[in-house]
Nucleic acid binder design. Structure first.
Lengths: 176, 176
DNA sequence: AATTTCATGTAACCAGTTACATGATTCA
DNA sequence: TGAATCATGTAACTGGTTACATGAAATT
């Protein structure tokens, strides 16, 4: 997802991607060669991206990858999928990645829809956690329940963020 | 870490651990047999835990693992380590896990020290992120900077949580 | 009698990590 | 001229995932 997102903006080589992953805010994605290069070949094999060798004459080849139309369609398709509880619990990073590219690729309405889905799914997950918290045996350890509270707090701040961004996008519309 | 933490409280079998991981708030740790059983054997090989077969007479063996004294020492040692930037960036789950068991195992003072280290390390990471945020090109995409803000917000709520727990522990002392 | 739960495990597969290899080009 | 950077890649190792295997005991 991260690779395809970057290639949507600018065609890049594996080396460029590694730099992008290690230098920018995407640094929590792996930039190791053993991750990037095999991934590029996998995605290319699936016809989602295509590499073209630049300056093969200069004896220092550079393989620049571009999103194919199939890749673009698959990427948009993934961006369009609705937010599940599993996404919230296990793939928050990917949700944020999807959101990062969404406004430009799917437009205002679908980004709003995503954020509303996201915030309500997170909200109901919080409710489930609060319920579990009440049933929790709080005598066993001091730290356990406190760590649990941390998880809930983080989700709350996530909902807060989502609602703020929703308002921001709605304001954008008014100005137009 | 999670396995050893649970075994610190109660000796358990692999099956019990799987149930604990899938049923309780530790469910974001893997409970798959292909993760638990090999891990138990690795940890046992390192002499950190020891398994004893219960009721081998009843034809349904049950291997119950207990923390060894070496394992307990190693666990405490890990809990005692100071909080690094890498822990904050890459191992937040483990930090929370460490915190969960800390009060009972290391006591009040060292838990406070941990939380203060944790909150100041997180605070300076936030400052670094804010600096990066300012330098960020915000014209490329709408979502990118917003997702970045989300990351910062989550860290802020984490610091907020830590400070709250610090006050709570300090109050605990006053009551005694 | 059939289903669920207890209980432990293996095997094929997937994918990431670190370290290494290679060699050209650019910079100090 | 030597170091850093550009640029792509492989190999050994690690460890998790899913699916499967086995079979007893408890429940319905």
């Amino acid at each position: 997802m991260a690779i395809m997102g970057l290639l949507f903006y600018i065609p890049m080589s594996g080396y460029d991607l590694r730099k992008a992953f290690s230098a920018t805010s995407l640094k929590h994605f792996s930039s190791s060669p053993g991750a990037i290069y095999p991934a590029l070949r996998r995605i290319e094999a699936a016809a989602l991206i295509q590499g073209k060798i630049e300056r093969q004459n200069t004896l220092r080849p550079r393989k620049v990858y571009t999103l194919t139309s199939v890749g673009m369609a698959a990427f948009k398709e993934r961006l369009s999928q609705s937010v599940t509880l599993d996404d919230i619990m296990w793939r928050m990073d990917e949700l944020m990645l999807r959101f990062s590219f969404m406004y430009e690729l799917l437009g205002k309405e679908r980004t709003l829809k995503f954020l509303e889905e996201f915030s309500s799914a997170t909200g109901s997950h919080i409710q489930a956690l609060e319920k579990e918290y009440k049933l929790m045996n709080k005598n066993v350890s001091f730290g356990g329940p406190r760590a649990f509270e941390h998880g809930i707090e983080v989700y709350r701040s996530t909902v807060h963020w989502a609602k703020k961004v929703i308002r921001e996008i709605q304001k954008k519309g008014e100005l137009k």
